[in-house]
Amino acid sequence: HYLFLSVCIRRFSFCILYGNLCKKKSNKYQIPTHMNVLIKYRTHPFWLQKYCPSHEVDGTPRCCSCERMEPRESRYVLLDDGRKLCLECLDSAVMDTNECQPLYLEIQEFYEGLNMKVEQQVPLLLVERQALNEAMEGEKTGHHHLPETRGLCLSEEQTVSTILRRPRMTGNKIMEMITEPYRLTRRCEVTAILILYGLPRLLTGSILAHEMMHAWLQLKGYRTLTPDIEEGICQVLAHLWIESEIMAGSGSNTASTSSSSSSSTSSKKGGRSQFERKLGDFFKHQTESDTSVAYGDGFRAGNRVVQQYGLKRTLEHIRLTRTLPF
């Protein structure tokens, strides 16, 4: 017998419910009552994780990948730049530049399968948050997704600090990050693609697929596109890649491994843990429900015309008119 009232506030459902528990704290913790009868809690729109409203303002950590709040009975891993990663996302996290190369090859093959081969050899580097922010400041142009940029397609010559070797984990902290300077030389319109380290393979791949589309557009001579057109079509490619990965991994319950090369290989065979499949659905949901103008509205408009006219015709129309077809 529940008294239920649900009011949608932005991305969360704010509910008043009789008798429930805070999943953030533990299954045994009773959410504080109001008026001795009603209980207030909030629910994540995808994971349906229930928690007290106070946890949104009391500094309770969220996983930087899946956005779930850190439960009291378990500890998330602390990355050296202050981000926190849950253990499930850590399981397939890509931690250094070498680990990411098999995934990069996969996405290059994905683009070739769409008859969109990137002819030039564009370096892919995994970097820390500070290095990504510094590289972003060194770029003269570009659109960036706030509050945090997790990938970047560079066109300027500069020196970037890249992660050389997978860091060691001590307790619940990432330690001994080894980096080296990498000098970018402008041999074509794109000098490098940078991706934030420490994200799960599927999220790393979707960011990489997005940045690869920026590179493809620049190398093919697409110029002066508005943010909603360019970011929107890049999100369409990221969404297509995530969908292909979800379909490829839908037939197996085999658990994924922690190394990116192993998880990359397993994805082609359909091997994917139940959580990783759910994580893919979450990243797809994030793209589809993004509320920003450039990334969210841009994706939905681009996805609609790609479904109607096909990717090839849509890109040709953008090249000729710098707009989407009607």
Rank of each mutant, 00 (worst) to 15 (best):
Y2A: 08
L5A: 12
S6D: 14
S6E: 15
S6N: 12
R10I: 01
F12K: 14
S13D: 14
F14M: 06
F14Q: 05
C15F: 03
Y18R: 15
S26T: 14
K28P: 03
K40H: 15
Y41M: 10
F46S: 10
Q49N: 08
Q49W: 09
Y51W: 09
P53I: 01
H55M: 07
E56I: 11
C63T: 03
C64A: 05
C64N: 06
M69E: 11
E70L: 02
P71G: 07
P71Q: 09
E73M: 06
R75L: 05
L78F: 05
K84S: 07
K84E: 03
C89E: 06
C89D: 09
S92L: 03
V94W: 07
C100G: 04
L105V: 11
E112N: 14
L114I: 02
E119W: 09
E119P: 08
V122K: 01
P123Q: 04
L124R: 01
V127R: 05
E139R: 04
K140T: 10
G142H: 06
H144R: 04
R150E: 00
C153Q: 03
T159Y: 06
L164C: 05
P167M: 04
T170L: 08
K173M: 02
M175G: 00
M175V: 12
E176V: 07
R186W: 00
L196D: 03
R201N: 08
S206A: 01
L208A: 11
L208V: 04
M212N: 01
M213N: 10
W216G: 05
L219S: 08
L219N: 06
K220S: 13
Y222C: 09
T224H: 13
E231N: 01
G232P: 02
A238S: 14
E243G: 03
M247L: 13
G249D: 11
S250F: 00
G251W: 05
G251C: 06
G251D: 07
T254Q: 12
A255V: 09
S259L: 06
S261H: 01
S261A: 08
S264P: 11
S267L: 09
S267F: 14
G270T: 05
E276N: 14
R277W: 15
F282H: 13
F283G: 00
F283D: 01
H285C: 14
S289K: 15
D290V: 06
T291R: 15
L311N: 08
R313Q: 15
T314Q: 06
I318V: 13
R319C: 09
P325I: 13
